[in-house]
């Protein structure tokens, strides 16, 4: 196999550069923005635009085939979810472990309808960020994978929603499994109004402001989801639900009423 050195040496030759790069090179990044300050300013700006942004989310996600519902209280959100679960004849729901989903107390309502709810939580006794038993994690991953493969509905929170395109930003991390928004035929996400931002560029800036190092501010997988899974591969006819969920519902919950 080629070594990195041999590979890069060829590229350098193609660029007519010397084999060894000069010691003092101009920096690779040409941005001089102070990320923290820019992010703070952005948040202030976004707060002022929020009602318009929420309207834009509605419009854009509608256009992409998603369903956006503005709910004014936790019980209204729960009512929507339980109604949808009933409609889909759901038996199994798998959900993110999230403060918001726990605060609205959706599990009890689903249990009352005879629906099983599993949470994508770490194995008991495991604390996020601390060392854990590999065996316990392996078992946990396996059982969650099996549940998700059978689940009728995946329920998640989001990290952000991008108004410009109606895009949900889902960052995989402990408690926030990738598969919840991917494997079940229906995906329902709940967002607080304060999580709505304007553009993808906003997200990338806010992410970078959250840590000094990429391994801190980016998790292993950030999924940007805009509407249901879709394809046009047969005669360019738009069809949904080919691999991922065929339905995407976004519940936008007013901040003041989240708890």
């Amino acid at each position: 196999m080629s070594s990195q050195e041999a590979f890069l040496a060829r590229v350098r030759r193609a660029l007519h550069k010397d084999a060894v790069p000069p010691p003092s090179r101009p920096p690779l990044w040409w941005s001089d923005t102070d990320v923290a300050e820019a992010a703070a300013q952005l948040q202030t700006r976004l707060a002022a635009q929020r009602p318009a942004l929420i309207a834009q989310v509605q419009q854009e996600l509608d256009a992409a085939g998603g369903v956006v519902v503005h709910v004014h209280s936790a019980p209204a959100a729960v009512a929507y979810i339980t109604h949808l679960a009933q409609q889909k004849d759901a038996h199994l729901v798998v959900r993110w472990q999230s403060d918001l989903l726990e605060a609205i107390e959706v599990d009890d309502a689903l249990h009352q309808q005879g629906i099983t709810v599993h949470t994508t939580a770490l194995p008991p006794g495991t604390v996020a960020g601390e060392a854990t038993s590999t065996a316990a994690m392996t078992t946990r991953r396996q059982e969650l994978r099996e549940w998700l493969a059978r689940a009728d509905l995946g329920l998640s929170g989001v990290d952000y929603v991008i108004a410009e395109t109606g895009t949900l930003v889902l960052m995989a991390r402990a408690g926030q499994m990738r598969g919840v928004s991917l494997l079940p035929p229906v995906h329902v996400a709940v967002v607080r109004t304060s999580q709505v931002i304007a553009t993808l560029a906003d997200y990338l800036l806010l992410a970078q402001a959250a840590g000094a190092d990429p391994s801190q501010y980016l998790t292993s997988c950030v999924s940007f989801v805009t509407g249901p899974s879709r394809t046009g591969d047969i005669e360019l006819k738009l069809t949904v639900g080919v691999h991922g969920p065929g339905e995407l519902h976004l519940l936008v919950l007013d901040d003041s009423n989240a708890r």
């Binding site: 854009e60 495991t126 990429p214 391994s215 940007f224 989801v225 805009t226 249901p228 899974s229």
Partner: peptide, 22 residues
Amino acid sequence: GQKISSYVTLLTGPRRAHDLDG
């Protein structure tokens, strides 16, 4: 002609110690 495609996936490394899938 889409403003963004249905899925854009930004992957930074394999799954980490406390990731439940990946």
